[in-house]
Amino acid sequence: MLLRGRPMVCQEVVELVSDYLEGALPRGERRRLERHLAGCPHCTEYLAQMRETIRLTGRLVPGDFTPQMREEFTELFRRWREDEDEPL
């Protein structure tokens, strides 16, 4: 016979979704959360929003690597080469 944990409430769920997505919840807690999700469209929505937030964040385009930056680092490399080549 399985002992069920105390049911989770919505207010707890929202504090745990990130850990849930990380796979970091202990098994018992994960089960309680999933049981709650199965019966709660609002928290299910919240989880979907969290996933979408992560997805959209991941789509930010990196800043441009400008010609000026390219020049600066080329300079840096050449100066380093010169220093390397100098007799000790």
């Binding site: 796979g23 996933r51 789509r59 930010l60 385009v61 441009d64």
Partner: peptide, 22 residues
């Protein structure tokens, strides 16, 4: 803040957990 205000045009597919996704 140094990222320009745009999103990549092609959406990344997200696996089911964020840790694998990253």
């Amino acid at each position: 803040s140094c990222a320009p205000a745009v999103l990549r045009p092609v959406p990344w597919e997200m696996p089911s957990t964020a840790s694998r996704a990253s």
